[in-house]
Every structure is written in C-alpha cells, then in structure tokens.
Computed example of a mutant assay.
Amino acid sequence: MPEPKPKALRVASIDAFRGMTILTMIFVNELAGISNIPDWMKHAAAEADTMTFVDLVFPAFLFIVGMSIPYAIAARERRGEGKLKIFGHILLRSVSLLIIGVFMVNTESGYNQEVMSISIYLWALIMYVCVILIWSHYSKGIPQWQKYTLRLLGILGLLILFILYKGGDGSGAMQPQWWGILGLIGWAYFFTCLFYLLFKTDMIALLTSLGFCIAFYLLMNINGLEPFPSYLAWLQGQSGNASHTAITLSGLIVSILFSRGLKNQHKHWILYILGFALFLFIAGFLLRPLHGISKIHASPTWSLYSAGFCCLIFLLMYLILDVLGWKRWFKYIEPAASNPLLIYILPYILYALLGFIGIAIKPDFMSSGVLGIFWSLLFSIVMMILVALLNKINIRLRL
C-alpha cells in the first residue's frame, strides 16, 4: 500500500526549529568576531575531538532542510508536477545555492581590491541587490514581464560583477575557494532530494543511503590512500558533502516518521525517532576512533552526533508547541522561519553597506567578553526585527 503524502500544512514544530536555528546561526556568526569568550562558544579546533553547541548550528539547518523536503515535494505533486519537472526545480534550487554561496565567499577573501575598478564593499552590495532581484518572491500583482525584467537585470548584474572581480595578483578570476555555507547546503539538498525521488518513504532504502554516505566518507579518507588520478580527484573532495548529506537524510527520515505518526494518529513515532537518535549516537560512538569528532573535517561521528542531537531538539520543539501548546512565543521568531535566506544574508548586506560608507556600528568595548556576547545577541534580535519589517513590505527570497 503506497505511503500517504505529507499533509498540505505548515508544521509549527518544524518552523520553530528553522527559526531558532537561523537566529542562532546569526548569533554565532557575530560571536565569531568577539574575543575573550568561553571555548564552548567557539567552533572546536579541527583536531580537538570534541564539539560545541556552535558546531551544531550548521548541522541543525541541514537537518531542517531534510525535514522540509517531503512537504515541499508533496506540494508540487499536488499541483500536478511530474518527476522531471520536480527534478528540474531541485536542480535549479541547488545551483542557485551554489552560485550565491560562491559569490558570498569571494567577498570574504581571494580578491585584490587594489586592481578592482570598484571597492569590494560596493561589489558585495551590488551582488546582494542582484540576488534579491533574481530570487525575490514577487507578489501576484506584479506583471510577468516586470518579474522577468528584474530577474534578467539581476543575472546581468552578476555576470558584470564576475567580470569586474580580480583575485590573486590581479589577473585571477573569481573562483569557488569553497562553496560557502549556502553552497554546502545546496549539495546536501541536491543529493538528499535524489535519494527521496528514488526511494520515497522506503525506510530501508533511506537508511541504506545514509550508510552509503558514511561509508563514502570513510573510503575517501583511508589513511595512506593514494591520491586519485586527476580526472577522479574531485571524488575525494566530496567526502564532506557526503557527511552533510547524511545529516540532511537524517532530517528526511525523521520527517517521514513524524508524518506517519500524524496520519495514523498514534504516538509510536516518538519512540521511533528516539530509537533513531540512539542508533545515530551509537554509530557515531563506534566510528569515533577513526576520525574523531570534527566539524572542520566533517567527520562521520560529528555528523551522526549532530543528527542525533537534532532529533532530540525537534522532539523538544514538538513537546513545547504541539503537546503543551506553548505557541505564543513562536510569533517572535516566525519572520526568521518564513524568510530564512533573506535573514541569513541581511548581516552581510549591513556590513557591506557600513564598510562602503566607512562606519563601524560596534563599539570597541563591546568586542570582548560578556559585553561582546550581549552585542551578538542584540544584533541577532535586530536582524529578526529587520526581516519582519521586510516581510511586511513583501520582500521575500525564495529559491
């Protein structure tokens, strides 16, 4: 008997998880520039064999991306879209995340501003304007020709910025130094969607896919493994993407278990998710001697532990919102949950603008210690208020 499709509704627990994750991401990104703070508020060192709550933020977003996939694809199927059209949307969305990620990375390093015709701050500002033009969710009242014109202007703008960019000694072009956070999300989203299109809700196949991702990382990182031939070298660079995909797949699996529980009106799914979390923790513990816990190296234990913690966090969100009914607080983070891409890039837009006009908004005395932590918290709250205001004037980004 075929598995029923996820309901056409927004699940408060998932939205709350997304909103809390994106706000925490903004907080820890700002916190990265603060000195004299406890080690547990920083990313753990690559070889430290441990993780902090900061190392859990990016995996939490990957996890919530995986949880959202069945609902998003089911919505497209209800609109009558076939697999080919859905795959086209997945491919377009993944490429969009890769493009934005690479452009963002090149505003941070690799540029040679002395030989560029415009400052890197102005370059970044124009880039973000182009991103908004291309990926805005335009209201239905705007004529189609205007939407296409604005998107075309954005695309042309990115092409011009690509040409204007100078790196290295001034002769180098823009390149993917790394994919950026959005690009890494794009890869994980793409592979997880492929697994879902192939296997749908076949839990054995999805768990096997999760195991494949972990096995791929281990195979690509065998001690003493000779470098692959140049035409296959890219494979070794995909091990991190495999770990990220494992986290996203875990979110997908939890979403399916959750959806089954809603439809069958029983609570056994909570035990299934707890059992899945236990499985992830045990698998991570057993694999720890091989590569330790390392967010920087995207080790299997880090990815499995992160996915396990995310299972527990989601269950906590469900308990608070859906069981106890404590939903009033959610309205304060709903803007971040409903417009995550915009609120993610807002701090970068703000700092590019401030750099261009030569103004620093953070006082020196709030760059260290407790005051620096308070600043980071205040900054994330301000970003949430800004995105709420932008939501009201219908500025939303949707890939």
Results as ranks from 00 to 15, higher is better:
residue 165 Y to V: 05
residue 97 L to R: 05
residue 240 G to N: 03
residue 328 R to M: 12
residue 186 G to P: 01
residue 118 I to T: 13
residue 299 S to A: 02
residue 39 D to W: 09
residue 215 A to I: 12
residue 79 R to Y: 03
residue 175 Q to Y: 13
residue 105 V to H: 08
residue 47 E to Q: 11
residue 283 A to T: 11
residue 211 G to D: 02
residue 184 L to Y: 10
residue 322 D to T: 10
residue 337 A to N: 08
residue 24 T to R: 00
residue 20 M to D: 02
residue 289 P to H: 01
residue 285 F to C: 02
residue 179 W to R: 05
residue 38 P to S: 11
residue 347 P to K: 12
residue 376 S to E: 08
residue 397 L to Q: 06
residue 350 L to W: 09
residue 173 A to T: 13
residue 151 R to P: 02
residue 146 Q to I: 13
residue 280 L to H: 10
residue 349 I to C: 02
residue 269 W to P: 05
residue 12 A to C: 00
residue 239 S to G: 10
residue 309 F to P: 05
residue 225 L to V: 09
residue 310 C to F: 05
residue 313 I to W: 08
residue 127 M to D: 01
residue 244 H to I: 01
residue 244 H to P: 00
residue 19 G to N: 09
residue 319 L to R: 12
residue 7 K to L: 14
residue 383 M to N: 03
residue 279 F to P: 08
residue 269 W to C: 04
residue 57 V to P: 00
residue 285 F to D: 06
residue 310 C to V: 06
residue 37 I to E: 07
residue 77 E to P: 01
residue 320 I to G: 07
residue 240 G to I: 00
residue 275 G to M: 09
residue 111 Y to R: 03
residue 376 S to M: 03
residue 351 Y to R: 11
residue 1 M to T: 11
residue 308 G to R: 12
residue 218 L to Q: 13
residue 61 F to S: 07
residue 135 W to Q: 09
residue 112 N to I: 07
residue 262 L to Q: 15
residue 375 W to R: 06
residue 154 G to D: 12
residue 45 A to D: 12
residue 389 L to Y: 07
residue 138 Y to H: 08
residue 392 K to W: 04
residue 276 F to L: 14
residue 168 G to M: 07
residue 229 P to Y: 08
residue 317 M to T: 00
residue 159 L to E: 11
residue 372 G to M: 06
residue 271 L to A: 14
residue 176 P to G: 09
residue 171 S to G: 15
residue 281 F to W: 11
residue 346 L to W: 07
residue 18 R to I: 09
residue 246 A to H: 06
residue 361 I to L: 14
residue 164 L to D: 08
residue 203 M to T: 11
residue 187 W to I: 15
residue 105 V to G: 10
residue 345 I to G: 08
residue 42 K to N: 13
residue 45 A to Q: 03
residue 317 M to N: 06
residue 286 L to K: 07
residue 46 A to V: 06
residue 140 K to S: 13
residue 285 F to H: 10
residue 393 I to C: 13
residue 185 I to V: 15
residue 271 L to N: 13
residue 10 R to M: 02
residue 107 T to I: 07
residue 196 Y to A: 04
residue 230 S to A: 15
residue 229 P to N: 08
residue 41 M to D: 00
residue 358 G to H: 05
residue 161 L to W: 09
residue 134 I to M: 11
residue 48 A to Q: 12
residue 83 K to C: 04
residue 306 S to Y: 04
residue 394 N to W: 02
residue 300 P to F: 08
residue 363 P to I: 00
residue 293 I to N: 00
residue 256 I to H: 11
residue 262 L to R: 14
residue 45 A to N: 01
residue 367 S to D: 10
residue 242 A to F: 11
residue 58 F to G: 12
residue 60 A to P: 09
residue 253 I to S: 06
residue 222 I to M: 13
residue 200 K to R: 15
residue 206 L to F: 10
residue 198 L to F: 14
residue 228 F to T: 02
residue 145 W to E: 13
residue 363 P to S: 03
residue 264 N to P: 03
residue 1 M to S: 14
residue 146 Q to T: 12
residue 52 T to I: 00
residue 117 S to H: 05
residue 74 A to Y: 02
residue 222 I to A: 06
residue 165 Y to Q: 05
residue 246 A to M: 07
residue 159 L to A: 15
